[in-house]
Each structure stands twice: as C-alpha cells, then as structure tokens.
C-alpha cells in the first residue's frame, strides 16, 4: 500500500522543482501583472483604480509612438527571410569553402547584442567609417546622420537587427535543408532543372514550415525582444528624442525611471496578450516544420 503510493507520487517528486521554478519565474509574475494593472501601485502595492492605468497608457502619444516603432521593425522581416534563404541554400549546395563560410556567417549570432550595438554605433557615427566610405564612393547623399537624426535612427537599428537576426535564419534554414531528401534534389538536377527552378519548385515548397516558424519567431522578437538593441543604440533613452522608443522601453521607463509599476504592468499585460496571440501560430508552424522533417 505505502509502496504503491510512493510509486504514484514519485513522478511528481521529479517534476516538483520544475513546477516550483516555473511558477515563480512565470506563473507568479503573469498573475500579478493583471492585478497590478488595475491598481495604483506605490512601492509594493496600492488601491484598486479600475481601468485608469489602461486609459492613461492608451491616451498617451508616447505609448502609441512606441507601438508604431515596434510595428515598423516588422519591415525588417522580409529582408531577413530573403537573405537567410539565399545564404543557407548556397551553403547547402556545398560550394567550395562552405564550411569556412558557415563558421563566418554564424558569427553575428555569437556576438552579444550590446557589444555589436556599441561597435555599429561607432561605425555609423556621422564622421565614422561608414560615411567615410560612402563619401569616398561619391555617395554623399547616403552619408546620413545615422545615429543622431530622429528620421534615420530607427532604420539604423533595423540594419543592425537584420544583420544579426539573419544569422539565426541561416542557422534555422540550414538545419532544415540538411534534412531534405537528396534523392529528390538529384532527380530535379537530372531532369535538367536550372538553379532557380530547383530552388523555386523543389527546395522552397519543402521549407514552408520552417520559413513560417522563423517569421513568427521574428515577429515576437520585433514586438517584444529588441530591448538590448535599442538600449545601446538609443543611448539608454530611446533617443534621439523618442525616435527609437519601443514598448519594452516604455515598460522599463515606467518601472525604473518613474517608479509606476501599475502603468508598467498594464503595458506588460497588453504585450503579453499580443504574444499569446502569436504563440498559437508559432506552435502550428513548428508542428508543420517538424512534420516536414519527418
């Protein structure tokens, strides 16, 4: 009797640390942001104030500007997909030297975002090396104030994001390509299909799942995981002015700079709801990607 009870309890003992850890790091905060978002929190708690936090956020132009910036970052995704596809397919064809190329094109993903942001910021300074090259090439009209102009700053952040996140795409796509059925590709080759035809009719259809997955993951990144890029490029203020302000930074400011956890929580709730909406397509895409591979 005691023996069978201990056998039945044993699995729970094994998963207990996991449940405790996830409950603390995910469960507790996810419940509390909802509670806090309806309260005027000063310090650790405060009175209920209904929807006032939400009303305040939604009526603030800075919040909407941040949302718009996150949405603008989505424009980077098509470029990332095209670049990643091109490079990963070329690597997959085992062009002479592909092992070395592979080591090199993964480098952006090994470098930490703050480090690369610091370096890029110096490269794109108005009197920095990028503009020097552009002027040397008589492309003066392109020698913009990449960091200091509020019209351009967010685009510069996007260049950095494309540069780094494309490496993730290459990694992901190459993993998928390496599991493709070589016989089908060889058959296409024997049928006399040229490179474009092989890519378009044979390779791409088999990569739909993984491309979809990469797109969804990138959408989550652009909307909710660009803090490190923006923190350094925007000089810790989302600057110049509010040109690189994003929702994450809005939450950060409300929490740390103005000490308004209620406001920060309401914005967190909105961001959480958006990410929940994206979790389902992500799972679907991942399932499809895995089915393709099987």
């Amino acid at each position: 009797m005691t023996n069978s009870l201990s056998i039945r309890l044993k699995p729970y003992l094994y998963v207990l640390p996991l449940v405790a850890l996830l409950a603390f790091v995910f469960g507790y905060p996810l419940l509390r942001i909802f509670e806090f978002s309806f309260k005027l929190v000063r310090g650790v708690d405060g009175p209920w104030i209904g929807l006032r936090n939400y009303e305040l956020i939604l009526s603030q132009s800075l919040f909407w500007e941040s949302v718009l910036h996150n949405i603008q970052l989505l424009l980077a995704i098509p470029a990332m997909v095209v670049i990643s596809l091109l490079i990963s397919i070329l690597l997959f064809e085992r062009i002479a030297g592909w092992r070395l190329y592979r080591v090199i094109v993964f480098v952006p993903f090994v470098l930490a975002i703050p480090i690369i942001a610091v370096v890029m910021k110096r490269m794109f300074q108005f009197s920095g090396p990028v503009n020097e090259v552009l002027r040397w090439a008589s492309l003066d009209f392109l020698a913009l104030d990449w960091i200091g102009s509020s019209d351009v700053a967010l685009w510069t952040v996007m260049i950095l994001i494309v540069w780094r996140e494309s490496a993730l795409g290459i990694i992901l796509f190459l993993a998928r390509l390496l599991s493709l059925d070589e016989a089908v590709l060889e058959a296409g080759r024997l049928d006399g299909a040229n490179w474009w035809q092989r890519v378009w009719h044979i390779i791409l259809p088999q990569m739909r799942g993984v491309i979809e997955f990469y797109v969804v993951v990138s959408v989550i990144t652009m909307l909710a995981s660009v803090f490190a890029y923006v923190y350094v490029m925007g000089g810790g203020r989302g600057g110049p002015g509010t040109a690189t302000m994003v929702v994450e930074f809005y939450i950060f400011n409300a929490l740390i700079r103005t000490s308004l956890p209620g406001i920060a929580s309401a914005a967190s709730v909105l961001l959480f709801l958006v990410s929940v909406l994206l979790i389902f397509p992500m799972f679907r895409a991942r399932r499809r990607a895995r089915e393709e591979e099987a």
């Binding site: 996830l22 790091v25 905060p29 996810l30 310090g43 939450i251 956890p261 967190s268 990410s275 979790i279």
Partner: peptide, 20 residues
Amino acid sequence: LSTSLMAVPPIVMIVPLFVL
C-alpha cells in the same frame, strides 16, 4: 505549458519580480 512559455517575452515578467 512549459514549452509554450518559451514564447513569452521576458519583459512581461519583469515588473512583479522587480517589486517582489
């Protein structure tokens, strides 16, 4: 449940943990 948590952006958990 555990797997789906991979898609939750870390920023969402920050506020209550900071207060706590």
